[in-house]
Simulated scan of single mutants.
Amino acid sequence: MRVPFIKMHGLGNDFVVLDARERALPDLAGGTVRALADRRAGIGCDQLIVLEEDEAATCRMRIFNQDGGEVESCGNAARAVGLLLGQPATIATKGGTIATRPDDAGIAVDMGAPRFDWQAIPLAYAMDTAAMPVGWEGLEQPVAVNVGNPHIVFFVDDSDAVRLDTLGPLIETDELFPERINVNVATVEDRATIRLRVWERGAGLTRACGTGACATAVAAMRTGRTERDVTVHLPGGPLRIAWADDARITMTGPAAEAFRGSFDWGDYA
């Protein structure tokens, strides 16, 4: 079975997109995802994206990390899919339905409203998610927020100095987080600017994370560090994040198509 694919990225966070809206695909096993995501023996990507028909939305977007696990949301992938659709659209995900529209700066995504209660993150037990009384090797008092998927945010003097490659996996798999966690380290440059690095659950260090930018911006706004419209600078480039009075988050930034191709499903099953 020959399957076409589209390679895309948002600020360097890259995806293999499979369109199953008209032609159904075999069930995706974790091994198939890992093989396709492998950068030496496969196509290579941070996440595999599968588009399916949905009765209530323009399409459904399923998101699989490099490790084969299916996750709830991906902001950069939402912009990539919005670019493919080419018009205002609604996209159903495991984390809820989001809306995309073309914008002068790329694609704008209505990411919905954040959640802060400890059960929604989720955490293993109750605590204040605006100043969690926990720490890991000098990273202390993080903020937790769910923006379709779970994030923990540490505000530090210099995000580039944090050993996120070693602390990221340690925090991600801590028993405090029963569904694991995305780990963000952020430096607030001024009331409208944040510098950010992200360890993504199941994918590791990536050049950009759209939901991480949303979670970090909202965490900064919630704790009075910034205004409610900021630019978040990631290693791959900037995203604009606005948190409106109606509590909904809008993320705006670029997405791009890299190339198209096809592969034999049997080679990766």
Rank of each mutant, 00 (worst) to 15 (best):
T250M: 08
H9P: 04
L84W: 11
T216Q: 02
R60P: 08
I249V: 12
R260W: 06
P235V: 02
V71H: 01
G224D: 12
A78M: 11
Q87F: 10
A219G: 08
T226S: 09
G253Y: 06
P150N: 06
L84G: 08
T252M: 06
A217P: 07
A130G: 11
K7M: 12
T206L: 00
V153A: 03
E137Q: 10
A56T: 15
A92Y: 04
D103N: 06
V218K: 00
P142G: 03
T211A: 09
A24M: 12
D46I: 06
R191I: 14
T100E: 01
V16T: 02
R2V: 12
L18R: 05
A131K: 08
G236M: 08
T97V: 13
G236I: 04
A57T: 04
A242T: 14
G112C: 13
E175Y: 11
A92M: 13
F15V: 05
D104G: 11
R163C: 14
F155Y: 07
R248Q: 14
G112R: 13
I181D: 02
G236S: 10
G148L: 02
T58L: 10
F154R: 05
I43P: 00
I241C: 00
G148F: 04
F259S: 08
G266F: 07
P235S: 07
A89F: 01
E53L: 13
N13G: 11
I171L: 12
E52S: 15
A108D: 14
I49N: 00
A242L: 08
R228H: 09
A37T: 08
L36A: 05
V198F: 03
R101K: 15
C45T: 02
G69F: 02
V145Y: 00
R225E: 10
C74T: 06
D264G: 06
V153T: 05
P4L: 10
I107F: 08
C45F: 00
V185N: 05
G10P: 01
G95C: 09
R207M: 12
G202F: 06
V134Q: 00
N65T: 08
H9V: 09
T250I: 14
G82H: 00
T231K: 11
G253S: 12
D174G: 02
E70P: 12
V162N: 03
L48S: 05
E227H: 11
D128Y: 01
F64N: 02
K94H: 15
G31E: 15
G12Q: 04
D157C: 11
I49K: 04
A56D: 10
P142W: 03
M221N: 06
L18G: 01
D190A: 12
Q119E: 15
A80N: 05
P142A: 03
V156E: 10
P26E: 09
F15K: 01
M8A: 10
N13M: 10
D19T: 01
T97I: 14
G236H: 07
T100K: 03
L176A: 11
F64L: 07
